[in-house]
Measured scan of single mutants.
Amino acid sequence: MSIQHFRVALIPFFAAFCLPVFAHPETLVKVKDAEDQLGARVGYIELDLNSGKILESFRPEERFPMMSTFKVLLCGAVLSRVDAGQEQLGRRIHYSQNDLVKYSPVTEKHLTDGMTVRELCSAAITMSDNTAANLLLTTIGGPKELTAFLHNMGDHVTRLDRWEPELNEAIPNDERDTTMPAAMATTLRKLLTGELLTLASRQQLIDWMEADKVAGPLLRSALPAGWFIADKSGASERGSRGIIAALGPDGKPSRIVVIYTTGSQATMDERNRQIAEIGASLIKHW
């Protein structure tokens, strides 16, 4: 058993032996400061991975655009179909130039040979490839079927209504393609630790998130040596930015963190910096 498999397999085991986890309101002070700095709403939640207890939250039940963070949920739905014998990670999917949409750094290189379902999930999560996400959405029946999958998990909040890139429109008060921090954190925890997916599929999902290559300026920039993080970021119109993550010290995840912001006029660099500073406060007061 690899170190990674050891880590995921023991998450339920550690729940019975973990020390009490204490919240630190200092992080919420930073979240509120980020709102002031960005001139935008910020949603935040910090969840204990083992118990599911909410440690801190700010606007946990307000809607925010999901942006590309939905791609983790999408690959969770794909893995659920794999577990049920309805899909194979090794199945190759062929597509054409007409299928390519904006920001497809991986799929645009494989027009001649296509990509496997496994490769598409990797591209969608680690590189946020939009065509990969659309191709995967097609395999499960489209955005409405992803919403149905989430409903069956008990998440009646999170919804996907459109495809890439239209889902990134982020119109104020538009509930399409949105979630709430509390709903996203709970759903992510179920995917990573619950019985919905097999152990192998849970491991695969967290491996893809751990290999994320496009979230460096966010929480990863504040991470001390030896800490673990598996994450997925997102960005969209109207100053929207977000990240969902499982992270913790000693090389294993122990908390879920979800951060969303929307409605800012700030630059992408400034949005990144504010999220990184929230992460730094979280780690300092861990």
Rank of each mutant, 00 (worst) to 15 (best):
E145A: 13
G226P: 04
P172A: 11
T158M: 00
N134Y: 00
M268P: 07
P12F: 12
L223R: 04
L89A: 06
T179P: 01
I275C: 03
L73C: 07
L219C: 02
S122T: 11
R238M: 13
I278M: 06
A230S: 04
G263V: 08
L188Q: 01
G43H: 00
E175D: 13
E237D: 08
S57A: 12
T178E: 01
F228C: 06
V101G: 03
K53Y: 10
I243Y: 06
R7P: 15
M115L: 12
S221C: 10
D177V: 01
S51N: 07
L282C: 07
E145T: 09
E277Q: 09
G251S: 09
D83C: 01
A222N: 12
A170V: 13
Q88H: 14
A211T: 08
S57H: 08
I93D: 05
I256D: 00
L73K: 02
P25R: 08
I93P: 00
M1T: 06
F228A: 06
G43D: 01
I206G: 06
D250K: 11
E210L: 08
Y95D: 02
P253R: 06
G242L: 01
R255A: 02
V82A: 10
L219K: 01
L188C: 06
V8R: 14
P172C: 09
T139M: 08
A246Q: 03
L191E: 00
L38G: 07
L135H: 03
L167Q: 03
D83F: 00
R92Q: 09
D174Q: 05
D99V: 10
V214H: 07
E169M: 10
L247I: 13
E175R: 09
L137I: 07
R255S: 02
A170Q: 11
L146H: 05
N98Y: 15
D113Y: 10
S96L: 12
A182R: 14
G242A: 10
L74R: 02
A40L: 06
I54E: 09
L89G: 04
L188I: 09
Q203E: 11
A200P: 14
H156D: 13
I259T: 02
K232Q: 03
L10T: 14
L167A: 06
K213P: 03
S254K: 11
K53M: 13
K144N: 12
I243W: 03
L19E: 10
R41F: 06
G154E: 06
A200H: 15
D99H: 11
P181R: 02
I140T: 04
L223N: 02
I275V: 08
L89H: 04
P65I: 04
L247M: 11
A84N: 13
R220S: 02
M180V: 12
V214L: 13
G251F: 07
Q265L: 13
P253A: 14
I93S: 00
D269V: 12
